[in-house]
Amino acid sequence: MDRERLAYQVAEILLRHLPQGAEPSAVEAVTADLVRLLEAQASGVAATDEPPGRRLVVLTVLGRNHSGIVHAFSEVLAEAAVDIVDINQTIVHGNFAMMMIVDPTSAKLSFSDLKAALKRRGDEVGVQVFVQYEDLMRALNRI
């Protein structure tokens, strides 16, 4: 789908759902953002403008499913000012699996303190927690 048509459709959807009298410039800005996101998704490139050299952290949580697991970890991350870049969560046979890609660039904690805090939260919630920089994920799976 070409870009203009996509933008037109997105704007149409926005106007249909937004209350009357929405600021046209706001609609335009949201449309532009959404178009960029959709295009990036379609081409398989990460939607965010990733600054070069940014080293992300992969947080993996595995265990028995119960309520509040995502909340438990996003709370620790929010308190540490760690940005969640991406999140993927699924339930397989009652087992909970969540992978988060987080950006610790402006974190208030050092990596090892953050890791310890997340592990502690894992113990409280009763799930296994693995925290590591993305280096291995990046290097091992793609040639």
Binding site: A46, L56, V58, T60, D86, N88, T90, A97, M99, I101, F130, E134, L136, M137, R138, L140, N141
Partner: peptide, 17 residues
């Protein structure tokens, strides 16, 4: 997500199990 779920779990299986 930059890495698929399978890739992340495979890496963990190797390092942890």
């Amino acid at each position: 997500m930059d890495y698929t779920r399978r890739e992340i779990l495979e890496t963990l299986r190797m390092t942890e199990l």
